Amino acid sequence: MLSISNAHPAVEERILAAAASCVRDYGIERVTLAEIARRARVSRPTIYRRWPDSQAILAALLTRRVTEVAAEVPSTGSGRAAIVARIVAVAQRLGRDELLMAVMHSAPEFAMTYISERLGTSQQLLIDALAADLGAAQADGSVRAGDPRQLATMVLLITQSTIQSAQIVEPILPAEALALELGRALNGYLSNG
């Protein structure tokens, strides 16, 4: 097996890419450090120097994917309408994301950790970024008063629930209708009036 120095900047990327391909091919339950190492062309100790186990790799992978998707959707303004439009666009992309959906379908108990037991890193990052945006929108009067972090957390819960349940309500709310209704829900929640 090829062993690559820790100093090589592409090692972590290769490991995360290998983990993603394992999740897509096998589902999350059958992902092993040995298979990740084989696909990344690194030794298992190289992986252990970065993460303690496959669960930690998967958590890092999901954090990276969620933050990448959020970064892919540009902000078009600072008011409520622009913030809501961006949230809906990010939710649509996350709902179609092959990796995230593979995790949701192959390991619901892993996903439930971040749904019902604790906030993950990506959720914390999203709340922090959204709280800053909502604070700015409060200053221009387009978002109602309230603690921006609490508002952002509620927006996360509404949006996360929409993404998780999209498949079961698809016969009633196809993707475009669901996006429209999510936008209405968020606009109503954040509105001054």
Rank of each mutant, 00 (worst) to 15 (best):
I47Q: 06
P9I: 02
G27P: 12
Q160I: 10
A111Y: 10
G95A: 06
Q124L: 14
S106Y: 04
A139G: 12
L99N: 09
M1L: 02
V169I: 11
G183T: 08
A152W: 00
L58D: 00
L180W: 14
R184S: 06
V73W: 06
L2S: 14
I158T: 01
A59W: 01
P108F: 07
Q55E: 15
L157V: 12
S161C: 12
A102L: 09
N187Q: 14
V66M: 02
E117A: 08
S161V: 07
Q138C: 12
A89S: 13
I115W: 04
S122G: 06
E12M: 10
N192C: 14
A89P: 04
R44T: 15
A152V: 05
T153A: 11
I172K: 02
T46W: 08
A71T: 05
R24Q: 14
S3H: 06
L180I: 10
S54F: 03
E68V: 00
R65S: 00
Y189Q: 07
A7W: 01
A137D: 04
I15M: 02
E176I: 01
Q92Y: 04
I172D: 12
Q150Y: 06
I15F: 05
A139L: 15
L151H: 03
E176N: 02
A102H: 05
S161F: 14
L33V: 14
A19Q: 01
Y26V: 09
G95E: 03
P74M: 10
T76H: 09
R149W: 12
A139W: 04
